[in-house]
Amino acid sequence: MGITNIYNIIEPKDMNKNALLQILLSVQDADPRNYVSEENINQIAQMLNVSRSRVYTTASFYSEISLKPRGFHLIRVCSNAPCENDGKAEILKTIEKTLGITIGETTKDEFFTLESVNCLGACYMSPAIKIDDQVYGNLTPKETIGILKNIMEADKHE
């Protein structure tokens, strides 16, 4: 993995310094491991004619850009007060136990990565988590296990 053919995802005309953040996001989305690899940082730097450090400074600032390979599914647990007050800790513990990983880790089979996230704008249904692009709210530990099981099942049939 690692090197993406950037022109497959970004039009040459859009390849300019100002678009760096969108380029990084697109490169991350196109990578099966959901991250921006060092090879890609170098490649972007070369294409934009800037230094690697210049690309890295932007990439390393944003918490939704990962510089480490991640799993196929991203589970993000909201960590802000409305969710914390409504049982975030139990939800997190449930996920940790079910998958055997803690925040920042990826399962051995590279299926799941667990991360924490800031308010998902779903505080009216706290505690909330997000798996890939889907937000789940009003969670109980039991429901959480169900959701994870469903995802694992669905993947098996693919």
Partner: peptide, 20 residues
């Protein structure tokens, strides 16, 4: 791309300009 501070108007502009 995951930065609360980018809601601050000048940080937001820097972000659009491809910077942190």
């Amino acid at each position: 791309a995951g930065s609360y501070l980018c809601g601050e108007e000048t940080a937001l502009l820097s972000s659009i300009e491809g910077r942190k």
